[in-house]
Simulated assay, not measured.
Amino acid sequence: MIWTMAVATLVLAAWRVNWPALMEDKQRQHLCFGGAIALVPLWMLQAGIRDGQEIHFLGLTTLALMLGWRLGLLMATLTLVLITAFGFETWPEFGVNVLLGVILPVSFSYFIFLLTYSYLYRHLFVYIFVAGFFNAALTIAVKTAALAGYMVWSGDYSWAMVQNDYLTILPLLLFPEALLNGMAITLLVVFRPQWMCTFYDRDYLINK
């Protein structure tokens, strides 16, 4: 069931990508693969008390805002493939990691962006602090909570062990994750706004 949901979502994302346009846009290709590679060392910095309960920074909010939902999913999946091949994750858990560690956080981040774009005042600081900073903190919280729920549901760990050994690390990551993504997004919209597919000068800067 998990594999089916993960594969179906990735196929849907890949099917809706404008591949001919992407193949002609060398800069977009470099952004996609550069974003995927940039996440590799970030995801290697893992911390945890027990095996299988490691937690790490995500950086997926920046990726989602830079590439959009479809390419964000595909490139984050490529990062996960590399991380798993390097031995930092296990292949038996690949389906779960794709669904809860990639699809869920990327989709959640992009959904929060859509909410801010649709219902909040379109201003540079709203984009940076709400769609970027606070969005990143919420995203890592949702991803961690989902994986914690799966650990308990699968019977791998008891709720007490998950709560004491896994969820207790989360508060230490909320602000750093938010700051990491907020700083990255700030630098990108200031120096390379053309790299951010969700940032529009006419909405966030002109006549503000």
Rank of each mutant, 00 (worst) to 15 (best):
V126M: 09
P193H: 04
F113K: 00
L82Y: 08
P193A: 02
I55D: 12
L138I: 10
F111L: 15
L187S: 01
W91F: 13
V81K: 02
M196E: 02
A14M: 07
I37L: 09
M1E: 04
G34N: 06
M1A: 01
L114I: 13
I49E: 06
L42D: 07
F86M: 12
V102R: 02
D156F: 15
R70P: 00
A8Y: 13
V98G: 02
I206A: 13
R192F: 14
A76Y: 15
Y150H: 04
N164T: 13
L180N: 06
E54F: 07
R192L: 14
G52A: 05
P176K: 01
V190D: 04
L63M: 13
G155H: 12
A85T: 12
I169N: 02
L167A: 08
G132F: 08
V189A: 02
W19C: 01
R192N: 10
W15D: 09
V11S: 00
G52R: 03
F175N: 03
S118Y: 02
L99N: 01
R28W: 11
M66W: 01
A6W: 05
D51Y: 04
L80I: 04
D165K: 00
Y204P: 00
T168N: 06
S107P: 00
F191L: 12
A137T: 09
G132A: 10
L39H: 08
V11M: 11
E93F: 10
V126P: 12
F191Q: 08
H56P: 11
L65Q: 09
P92N: 03
H56V: 01
Y200H: 04
L78K: 01
E54K: 00
A178N: 12
I83P: 05
I206Q: 09
T90K: 00
Y200T: 01
F175H: 05
I49Y: 08
T79A: 10
G35E: 14
V96R: 00
L45K: 05
A137F: 06
T144Q: 08
Y127G: 04
C32A: 14
D51K: 04
D201R: 04
